[in-house]
Computed example of a mutant assay.
Amino acid sequence: MSDIEMSTAGTVAHTSSPMADAPGIPKLAIVVVTYKRQQLLAKLFDSFCTLTRTPWRIVIVDNEHSAETESMVADFARRTDGLWGVDAATPDAEGGVTRVVYAPQTDNLGGAGGFSAGVRRAWELGASWFWVMDDDVMVMPEGIERLEPWTHDHQVIQGSRLDSDGGAFYWQYRFIVSLGIPNPIAPAAFGPEGYRTMNTLCFEGGLFSRDVVAKIGLPDPRFFIYWDDTVYGYLASKVCEPIVVSDIILARTRDIPNWDIAGVRQLNGTSDMNRYHIMRNRGYMMKYFRAHGDYNRLLFGLGTAATFAKEIIRLLMVNRESLKTGVPSLIRGMRDARKIYRDATWEPMPPLGS
């Protein structure tokens, strides 16, 4: 997820995509990462059953490897058999026809590792498109048919979302690469085209093609949490033109404490674990930028200082009770980022080929 989450108040003026009644996205795999949030996962499963287009596969990555989640997935698979038929339209690369695929992990891999494992599993099955999301969202019934027209000309598409209160959710779709921070003033309006180009990605509803994965590889599990999707979108922008579209495809279902900024945008609360990874993972970000010739030590250092300052503001305004533990977490993350800077053995995620 991007460095700062913001929303706009009020209702959404939906701009319909062209060809809204087109068939579904071919060999679309929905990849869900979940960890100890069964109640939220149940809401997501319910929303899948309202889809007006049928996905080819739904891969559930369970970072908890929970018997409760496994049972939920089995029940969900039986529901989808009744809704969509017992057999999928086409067998997967392993000869299977089951639409719902359970992928338990032996360890908690975090969001980054979970999405890496889930995209890999869907890749192995032969998916052509990957629609990724956490367990704390629900899909719009028309989500697939709203995304489908954009796949004709684009390989990475980010749909719009509603916040947990039903208002529009503004996401920072432009990234200032030299500083390594999202652009906080990128225009929210989409214009008559219904989309804007972007150079980042959010694994909360991002859609990307097999061709992109072939060229840039799997999401990097080393991030564990934070900045993984940002960097994946940056890498995707090196091989195609990602877009964010006005069509609403998801709604968030988890309420997060936040600080309203002028009644228009908000700074969400977070945890010490997140704070640590926000700073530590700038080390991995720097490595990728340097590998692509986009690293400027001075400017990136300014971006790191700005990120640290923003987290201090977040602590003061949203999570004041965590101030004593939050600041040390930020400092520890910065120290570990320096270790990554100096790691001469580091290599980027390899492309997968066709």
Rank of each mutant, 00 (worst) to 15 (best):
residue 42 A to C: 05
residue 15 T to A: 04
residue 203 F to V: 02
residue 333 G to E: 08
residue 216 I to M: 09
residue 317 M to L: 07
residue 233 G to M: 00
residue 89 A to H: 00
residue 92 D to T: 03
residue 242 P to C: 01
residue 259 W to N: 10
residue 246 S to D: 05
residue 221 P to T: 08
residue 50 T to K: 06
residue 63 N to Q: 04
residue 130 F to V: 00
residue 288 Y to N: 10
residue 98 T to G: 05
residue 173 Y to I: 03
residue 139 V to C: 13
residue 327 V to Y: 03
residue 43 K to T: 07
residue 347 E to I: 11
residue 345 T to G: 02
residue 173 Y to C: 03
residue 333 G to S: 07
residue 293 G to M: 09
residue 207 L to E: 13
residue 196 R to Q: 00
residue 106 T to Q: 14
residue 181 I to H: 06
residue 196 R to H: 00
residue 24 G to M: 06
residue 169 F to Y: 15
residue 166 G to A: 05
residue 279 M to S: 14
residue 254 R to Q: 15
residue 271 S to Y: 13
residue 325 T to R: 09
residue 351 P to L: 13
residue 271 S to I: 13
residue 182 P to E: 05
residue 53 R to I: 02
residue 348 P to D: 00
residue 13 A to W: 05
residue 220 D to G: 02
residue 94 E to A: 09
residue 349 M to T: 15
residue 230 T to C: 02
residue 148 E to W: 01
residue 16 S to P: 15
residue 41 L to N: 11
residue 83 L to H: 12
residue 217 G to W: 08
residue 73 V to G: 06
residue 207 L to A: 12
residue 325 T to H: 08
residue 35 Y to A: 02
residue 188 A to N: 01
residue 170 Y to C: 03
residue 42 A to S: 07
residue 102 Y to V: 11
residue 227 W to Y: 00
residue 2 S to I: 13
residue 338 R to K: 14
residue 112 A to E: 08
residue 268 N to C: 10
residue 289 F to I: 11
residue 342 R to D: 08
residue 163 D to Y: 10
residue 173 Y to S: 07
residue 21 D to T: 10
residue 349 M to C: 14
residue 186 A to V: 01
residue 106 T to H: 15
residue 137 V to R: 04
residue 218 L to Y: 13
residue 68 E to Q: 12
residue 215 K to Y: 09
residue 219 P to Y: 02
residue 95 G to M: 04
residue 212 V to I: 13
residue 104 P to H: 07
residue 325 T to F: 04
residue 353 G to T: 03
residue 57 R to H: 01
residue 94 E to H: 06
residue 71 S to D: 14
residue 210 R to W: 11
residue 317 M to E: 07
residue 52 T to P: 03
residue 116 S to R: 10
residue 165 D to H: 08
residue 14 H to G: 11
residue 25 I to Y: 04
residue 341 Y to M: 11
residue 184 P to F: 08
residue 167 G to K: 06
residue 262 A to P: 10
residue 336 D to S: 13
residue 212 V to K: 09
residue 159 G to P: 10
residue 107 D to C: 11
residue 296 N to P: 06
residue 23 P to G: 07
residue 161 R to N: 11
residue 77 A to I: 05
residue 326 G to L: 00
residue 5 E to M: 10
residue 269 G to W: 15
residue 280 R to S: 03
residue 30 I to P: 09
residue 237 S to N: 02
residue 274 N to Y: 15
residue 75 D to N: 01
residue 250 L to D: 06
residue 210 R to P: 09
residue 337 A to E: 07
residue 278 I to K: 05
residue 19 M to W: 12
residue 39 Q to T: 12
